[in-house]
Design a protein around this nucleic acid. Structure first.
Lengths: 675, 675
DNA sequence: CTGTTAGCGCTTTCAA
DNA sequence: TTGAAAGCGCTAACAG
């Protein structure tokens, strides 16, 4: 006779205590309604009293089912399977089913054995066996029914399966990359034996056939972060501009290495992953990926299994239940920041027809005008957007939130501004950025402070666009901007006017920016890193950040080159840029007193007049400082003579249009307040 | 009677088929040796024939144990618990035990119920219940023995537990940060109710008491990546320079946000996590963390449980087994790249006694000499290291691997070089870095190529230090450096001499660098971004990258400031830097023909003579080009006059010491080859 | 060494 | 509506 002195209370004890039969106790415990109320109550009391808990094992034996299902996965360390487990556990929970987990881990050959063993303890099995051979599965599966496969399909056997359409995922990723101009791709491959790797590889083969110009190089890799990290150099060596990684882990490994080595993703190379693991959103940069709803996969597997178990219970012994329909799960492409346009150097020539449809500035009656949009103001001419004026409220505090113009385009549609670029994340299109106003920075990022060096964190101010309105039929945007320091105290109130003007005579458009900075309660002293100990770093004031181009030069009245321009007091500077065959020029003019220009074209492209080039600038309490700039954007290459000519013309036109007129004729920088 | 027509073969069938009793079959199946060999064989055959698999349920019922243990965790999505599961599953596998998982998920209140239910299906329970109240646990635990707790301790009950010494972990992290100079810390807190959060909070309290000058601000957060991402701005607002994150996930969220906003980790702020999840190594930057061996935690829990189960089986019904010893698990600090010295701006004054113990250069007989080390060559004087010369073989290909000097220190111990800084990862101390040699780059990173713009990937060359030897008793290091292009073809063979020399008279030391670049098979044309369309970007040649300082200026014979120095042909330039109260100067001299200086102190600090400032430079096949530089490192502030004086003195001394003598007196840059 | 048999604790049929 | 009892499939004590 069996001994097993389990410690639990048995049904017999409860029956005895309640003075009823074991069957009655059983009925009560299972909620059968056929028991007299008082008796049921007695039973329940006894059970509670004795802390009776029915033995699941005995029930299982008697019932022939355990309400447990097994999940067999190759590797519990893989987030993919973790998610599947999570999804399955959550889905099964409401039905009172528990999960038994088994890992085949290293023993790929023992996969079948493990599955079999696990299945024996349970009512059913969910099996993820990416590396088992089809033959092995074909032998195993009949022994473990009911079972559901994950990401495998064994033709002929009607074992339901939950499968991801990796092919479709690959196609969506490839199409995305192709749309961004990529023609040279690398596939960073999963484990050789992996079935889902095979699916991806095949899809890439198809994609290559669909896109005639596509080149795809395969780099053998694996499925872990480590693998991705290790093959990064090899991936770079393929000279691909776009990478399809086997999964997000591999993509993360790649990213880690590329970040370490300073490769710009996606500037130099675009990376896309697979799966959309939780951390994908939080990569640096955030990862574009074909999202596989992994937890849902687990949930679906449970769903199929549950149906199977139910069917079987309903028609015991009867022929096989109708195989559950198992539609493929479609991965959804999630575009984040790790993919971007193919680098200019690798871009193919764009047919000139793409440049069609632009507004002819010579059309009579066409004007540029400001209008409100959901998220700011837009300067448009006809249908064509020229610039957007954003409040900057959404900027992170460390970037010194401020209103700015971005994007801003030439009439030919070329981007003339850049925002939060990798090299200086706190550059935002065109803005009034000043690194030191009584110790507060309106520049963002680290600032050079005397006696402290480059400093972050402490002193970011904020410019609030208190109210903004379009004047003169939209020709001018008037904005009151309040500058508050890190404690929220007002420092400066600025009256700003932005005038957009078409210059059909010269096939250009022009922006007038005029600001009056009014010192509130107390004196305002404007400084710069240069005035704080780092000569040459005299930046601060109106600052215009441009995107990189194939080539960039700067012209001034004093001479050409960055070295000449930087610090010069030329009335104008021209940043001339080439993009493939096309050219644009940004002409910046200081119509009034000329402050030294801060100019960079070597490390990045940006320029603006410096308020505190080598000395601080004081605005006495109650008085104000005027800043004026006229910019002209032209879709051609200007030379020194052109630029000088255009300068005069543009200033006159902008002034006539009211762009700088409010401030009257050129005057001393510091002037008495006017209400 | 029960019906349950289970589909499996029963022991009775096997017994019948084999013509033996059920007991015999049982014996055979359980490997009892007391069965006659032939009979056993018959049984096995019958079993195999009938595909007989013993019912685990029935065995379980009979044996009173199921060889299954339950693991109850709050959240299967948490990598921590995933690892614990993994560890436990792996540890239990050899014993034939399987794991049943249950998640308490949202229902924190149903934690007890879930645990109880799960326990009923198993022999034992591992419980992770970080948020259950102690009272609840006290009531639950006696009902679920044998059980093991994870990261909880219920005094009075002798339930074994596996616990991490989070306190010790916090202390090691804090000590690490304090050693780096941090005094302002932020603790990014875990979930309020979490027990392990409480432990960390208490330890931080203690740490604050241990370190009198320490300030710790707590930022309420949570335990997920999302939580970390969300509180990043708040963390910055605390102005802490060091952050202790509740766990690695939170740290990752922080990192993601800080990277997005361009905050330099660890330059601006140091971040440390907890746990050492797999991805910690692969963060950007890689994460410093108090490593908790999570999988091992699971393994240990299994170990304790196993012991308990065994004990119980051994002495059934006997009094409680001796509670298993459960030593705390110590987290090990893993220092990676997310923590670093406190930013200079926030550094406290260093007592001047720290500067003691330096070599007195006026000591007679003290010389600087080169000697081989495990990983290159070192220039030392007495005990003091002055510079290391590394082969660069380990550099990533995209950085154009090349030999370089780093670190290099002043006699006062101030760092004068920087390697792979965030802004330009391909800067490596002092090296011969040339962005365009017949189209190949020896500069690293993206390069500006005519007609292509800034380009990565395609054309990285490599400089091999073929052989290196110390000459003249160690005064000079002679190195033959072979430049090979991206296809591995030789382009240039360089003979390089590095001479280290103490200048006791002026309390300085000096480095002579002389290179003869010999064009191999064909003409060699050296270009730069400037000659490729980006005027001003004339860099390339000997390049010296310095770390940032509190203040930096550059002096030349032509005038002071970056604008004057950049492009100047002054025979010397001096980079003068302040660090707190101390100053250093790096004086660079071109003793021969003077090439224009490429100088940056505003965006970063770096300088060197430019080989192709505004025109390409050709070395005819078979001829060579000489490059010479003398550097003087002084621990004080030099002015223009000092610098000019020192220039002559140092050049004479270095020349006398053989540093540039091999090349003879100043000569034309391009000269006939000498063998 | 082998067979017989009494349970393990529960459910469900069947008879009352 | 309730109780008695026959299993569910296996193990182990015990007899032979």
């Amino acid at each position: 006779m069996a001994r097993a002195a389990k410690n639990g209370t048995t049904i017999a004890q409860v029956a005895a205590a309640a003075g009823v039969s074991r069957a009655t106790v059983s009925r009560v415990m299972n909620g059968r309604s056929t028991v007299a109320a008082d008796m049921a109550e007695r039973v329940r009391a006894a059970a509670a009293d004795l802390q009776y808990h029915p033995s699941t094992t005995a029930r299982g034996l008697s019932l022939g089912r355990t309400n447990t299902v097994a999940l067999v996965v190759p590797d519990l360390g893989n987030p993919m399977f973790q998610q599947i487990l999570r999804g399955a556990v959550a889905a099964a929970e409401p039905f009172g089913f528990r999960f038994l987990v088994a890992e085949t881990a290293e023993h790929a050959d023992a996969e079948a054995e493990t599955a079999l063993e696990a299945r024996l303890r349970c009512d059913a099995l969910i099996l993820a066996a990416p590396r088992s051979s089809e033959a092995a599965l074909r032998e195993l599966l009949p022994q473990v029914t009911p079972a559901v496969l994950i990401n495998r399909d064994v033709p002929g056997l009607d074992v339901p399966s939950v499968r991801v359409d990796y092919g479709a995922g690959v196609h969506s990723v490839v199409d995305h990359l192709v749309a961004l101009g990529h023609r040279d791709l690398a596939y960073v491959a999963g484990p050789r034996a992996s079935a889902s790797h095979a699916l991806r590889a095949r899809a890439l083969e198809e994609a290559r056939e669909r896109h005639s110009s596509l080149r795809v190089t395969t780099v053998a890799c694996g499925s872990t972060v480590d693998d991705g990290y290790r093959v990064a150099d090899e991936v770079l060596a393929t000279e691909a501009t776009g990478v399809v990684a086997f999964n997000d882990l591999v993509a993360f490994g790649l990213l880690a290495r590329l970040n370490e080595t300073g490769v710009d993703v996606p500037g130099d190379i675009s990376i896309a992953g697979f799966d959309d693991i939780e951390l994908a959103r939080y990569g640096t940069p955030s990862l574009t990926t074909a999202a596989v709803p992994q937890a849902e996969l687990g949930g679906r597997a449970w769903g199929l299994l549950h149906q199977l178990v139910a069917d079987q219970a309903a028609t015991p012994g009867a022929g096989r239940p109708a195989p559950a329909a198992s539609p493929l799960v479609m991965p959804g492409l999630v575009v984040r920041s790790s993919t971007g346009p193919v680098p200019p150097a690798r871009r193919l020539a764009v047919p000139s027809s793409d440049r069609a449809g632009r507004v002819r500035t010579s059309d009579p009656g066409v004007r540029a005008r400001w209008s409100a949009t959901n998220d700011g103001w837009a300067l448009t001419t006809g249908e064509q957007p020229l610039a957007r004026y954003a409040s900057g409220d959404a900027m992170p505090a460390v970037h010194s939130p401020r209103p700015h113009l971005h994007p801003l385009h030439s009439l030919g549609g070329v981007a003339m501004t850049q925002t939060t670029p990798i090299d200086h994340r706190h550059h935002y299109g065109v803005s009034m950025a000043v690194p030191d106003v009584n110790g507060t920075t309106y520049w963002g990022g680290r600032t050079f402070v005397r006696g402290q060096g480059p400093t972050l964190l402490s002193n970011q101010g904020r410019q609030h666009a208190d109210f903004t309105e379009a004047l003169e039929g939209g020709a001018t945007l008037s904005s009151q901007v309040r500058w508050t320091d890190e404690r929220g105290h007002d420092q400066v109130v600025e009256h700003r006017r932005l005038t957009g003007l078409l210059l059909p005579e010269v096939e250009a458009w022009s922006l007038g920016w005029s600001s009056r900075l009014h010192a509130q309660g107390s004196d305002v002293v404007i400084g710069s890193p240069a005035t704080n100990g780092r000569p040459g770093a005299g930046y601060g004031g109106l600052f215009w950040r441009l995107p990189f181009a194939d080539e960039a030069t700067v012209l001034t009245a004093d001479g050409d080159s960055e070295a000449h321009a930087h610090g010069s007091r030329s009335p104008w500077i021209a940043v001339v840029r080439r993009h493939g065959e096309a050219w644009t020029t940004l002409l910046l003019v200081q119509p009034g007193d000329v402050d030294p220009w801060f100019v960079r074209v070597a490390d990045y492209v940006g320029a603006g007049p410096a308020l505190a080039w080598d000395a601080t600038r004081r605005i006495a309490a109650g008085s104000s400082l005027d800043v004026e700039l006229v910019a002209v954007v032209v879709d051609r290459r200007l030379d020194t003579v052109d630029a000088a000519d255009l300068t005069e013309f543009a200033v006159a036109r902008v002034r006539a249009a009211g762009g700088t007129s409010r401030l009257g004729p050129p005057q001393a920088s510091v002037c008495p307040p006017r209400v």
